[in-house]
């Protein structure tokens, strides 16, 4: 109890503390007690890494001999692609938590991760498209990577659509968890099929960024920006989870208020 009380003090002084600290959902409360002090530090670390990474990406990293300054778009494109995939992995772990342990926190994690992952995947598509226009001469080519990301984006929209169809949160959580896991099994297969389809239709026409051929002068800023994006994702996800827990509390209280009014 002592840890919880001290952790909550800056957030909820006085009588509010009592009602914040204790709840019928033990784990969400403990989660809040853990997250509330961590979040400001995480946000600060994110801001710091971002400042460092973006500064390096824009001012320090050299231009590519082939692509010129457009290589700067890569510093946004690659990290958002990474997080688009990372987020689905995180949602899959949360889905296991939902289905196997029926953990309420896993429901919250899965629900709040979906829109954030969608946003990063969307950003990946937009930056990829803006990178493609000067490099390929068109905003969109049915390149294997872009196509796979587009499908990932569609899968994210499906999960959000599912969440938005059902009012009861725990039922929606289980349905979305099943869809997430099926997606997790299918994403590698989709990736493989799209690669196959692409090589059949466009034999090596587009520029490819080979993994080990990236020069360290570009790789280091890229790693820093990727770290910044990851930290931003974690901060946003934890904050969104906190919001969702509070939203559910508000809902419970509103139901009680309605019940009281009816008596």
């Amino acid at each position: 109890m002592t840890m919880k009380d001290t952790a909550l003090r800056p957030e909820a002084p006085g009588p509010k503390k009592r009602s914040m600290a204790i709840t019928n959902l033990a784990n969400p409360s403990r989660f809040l007690a853990l997250v509330n002090p961590i979040l400001p530090w995480l946000a600060a670390a994110t801001a710091l890494t971002f400042a460092l990474g973006i500064n390096q990406a824009i001012f320090v990293a050299p231009d590519d001999y082939q692509q010129g300054a457009t290589v700067k778009i890569m510093f946004l494109h690659v990290p958002s692609a990474w997080l688009g995939m990372f987020c689905w992995g995180l949602m899959s772990i949360a889905a296991l938590g939902t289905l196997i342990w029926r953990h309420p926190l896993a429901d919250v994690a899965g629900k709040t991760a979906a829109p954030i992952g969608t946003a990063f995947t969307f950003l990946c598509l937009v930056t990829g498209s803006l990178w493609g226009r000067p490099m390929w001469g068109t905003y969109w080519v049915w390149d294997a990577r872009l196509t796979s990301v587009l499908i990932l984006f569609l899968l994210y929209l499906g999960v959000i659509a599912l969440w938005r169809t059902v009012e009861d949160p725990s039922r929606a959580a289980r349905a979305a968890a099943i869809l997430t896991l099926v997606g997790a099994i299918n994403i590698p297969i989709i990736k493989f099929s799209v690669d196959w389809w692409n090589t059949l239709h466009q034999p090596a026409s587009v520029f490819r960024l080979g993994g080990p051929s990236i020069h360290p002068a570009i790789l280091v800023p890229l790693a820093v920006v990727a770290l910044a994006f990851t930290l931003l994702f974690l901060t946003l996800h934890l904050a969104a989870m906190r919001n969702e827990i509070l939203r559910r509390r508000v809902r419970t209280l509103q139901l009680m208020q309605a019940q009281k009014a009816g008596e």
């Binding site: 499908i151 899968l155 099926v182 997606g183 297969i189 493989f192």
Partner: peptide, 8 residues
């Protein structure tokens, strides 16, 4: 929900 999964 299902159409994206049928792409392969």
């Amino acid at each position: 929900l299902i159409l994206p999964l049928t792409i392969p």
